[in-house]
Amino acid sequence: MAEIGLNDLADLLGYQFFQFALIGGILVAITCSWIGLFLILKKQSMITDGIAHSVFGGIALGLFLGINVLWTSLATALASMTGITYLRKKGMAQSDSAIAVMMALGFSTGLILISLAGGFNVDVFSYLFGSILTISKGEIYSVATVAILAIAYLWTFHRELLSLTFDEEDSRLLGLPVTLLSVSFNILVAVAIVISIKVVGIILVTAFMVLPGLTAIQFNLSFKGTAVTSILIGLVGVISGIFLSALFDVAASGVIVFVMVGIFVTSAIYNKLG
């Protein structure tokens, strides 16, 4: 293994591809670790896995038709979220089964489309496993725009979302627009999943969104403290992951999630002992 010095780190920061990766990663990490905390508290973290896998169908459709994959992904994520919510509401499937159904539908459609289009290539793998270091200028603009809108929404309505998450009925009785808040939050989740696929890929989206919050909850802090800690853990994971990945030439998504798991396990042991 080559010796890595501070110079290399400084050099990295000079490259545009690296700057893009860092900015994109940071914005996505803030969005996702914040949303992830709400999802955990709503006991809905597995919904991310279902939607992420069904987005594979949207990606395949984009590649198949030659349309910008971001838009087809967003459309599929929203459709999948709507499908899951609808199946649950109509009592046609239990929560878990509703997720499984949408996941199966999206992923199988994706496989068919990709076979029709001539098989797997590097593109497809980058969606499955993430490719933050190869993010293009166009992509970074759209990812950053979406992430900043999501963060602005969370910043503005986090109190109301907390109220809704803690006690939906009481939120209704406070006169809060519960349905509007739920729908907008669901849209936000769908959007967050799509942009985090760019960073960590479909397979690791759930881990990426949920691990920071799961870790933060262990520390017995207030809600504010927990949310801030969750975001910090997300940032540490992404920043260290991107640096290590560039220096050692290993998959960024792997390192990011590995670091997050490391923090989770360390703090779990620390809490058990302390």
């Binding site: 309505f157 809060l176 207030s222 403290g225």
Partner: peptide, 27 residues
């Protein structure tokens, strides 16, 4: 309520001050 929910007593009580009219604004 969920005993694991990360919420302090002050935060829980503060939720009672939320209103539709002042949505999106801090207390």
């Amino acid at each position: 309520f969920d005993e694991q929910f990360p919420l302090s007593v002050r935060e829980l009580v503060s939720l009672g001050r939320l209103t539709r009219k002042r949505m999106g604004r801090p207390l």
